[in-house]
Design a protein around this nucleic acid. Sequence first.
DNA 1: TAATAATTTAGAACTATTCTAATCCGGTTG
DNA 2: CAACCGGATTAGAATAGTTCTAAATTATTA
Lengths: 146, 146
Amino acid sequence: MTRDRAESAANERVLDMLRGAGLKPTRQRLALGALLFGGEHRHVSCESLFDEARAAGADLSLATVYNTLHQFREAGLVREVHLDAQRRWFDTNVGEHHHFYVEESGALVDIPADSIEIKALPSPPRGFAVEGVDVVVRVRAKPARK
Amino acid sequence: MTRDRAESAANERVLDMLRGAGLKPTRQRLALGALLFGGEHRHVSCESLFDEARAAGADLSLATVYNTLHQFREAGLVREVHLDAQRRWFDTNVGEHHHFYVEESGALVDIPADSIEIKALPSPPRGFAVEGVDVVVRVRAKPARK
DNA sequence: TAATAATTTAGAACTATTCTAATCCGGTTG
DNA sequence: CAACCGGATTAGAATAGTTCTAAATTATTA
């Protein structure tokens, strides 16, 4: 079946990612990897991924989701986005890009890197090197027009 | 004395800010306002401002610092900066500008708005209006050269 | 001065996250 | 196949930052 083929290809990919990161392909990491990397890019919080994994029938603990997302981040498989003083968000798209953020709903929409041009970034304080540039465009629902 | 003159001018300014925001000029709000708006622009967290106020001899509670910073934010006297999933940061500079952020130390350095040029911001999702654009340039200490 | 409404407060409650120490694998070795 | 080893996982406790609550205080108005 096509469905199975696609799935097993995705599982292969997750296996490769884990191997590449030097992480043992455990049941839990495979399940989370499948959710994160099985299709389109994703934005998740620890809690949201945990709920999703549970709903999908995976048997794992919240602590494991925290551990795994942190390991994935160290390995460069996901990146963290700072939006909210309350919660950690992770993005499976580790390439250069930016975000629209809807504060009311927490929704995140990607902005391709090349649609924002940063001109003449001033040099960082002496002795420091630029790690990354994060652009967050905060948006809110327009009041309904009269 | 020049010192006193400067101080009382600053206090006048804080009073005006509070009046303008419709907030009663209580002892606590005046003390916090003096720390925040008495000189250069500041970056503070609730806890850091609380410690500072206490060190300066103000007698107030942590809850009041939280309340006050929130009220000041609603009134547009300070703005919140999202840097860190752990802590809320407030900036007394409410004009358009951006930040260098040193993750290791938590230090923040302003970047003037005009030194970053954002070209061709894509239009936001349908029905949404742009509230603000936050640019955070994350930097880290360069490894010492050999 | 009394009435009132807003403000402040201590401490409890809550939320997200990290820590801890015990248990559980998965892969190797004898 | 059994014993072993080190990493992975786990439940639950601990922590940090923040918010909530209800009572006491304070500023303003009448």
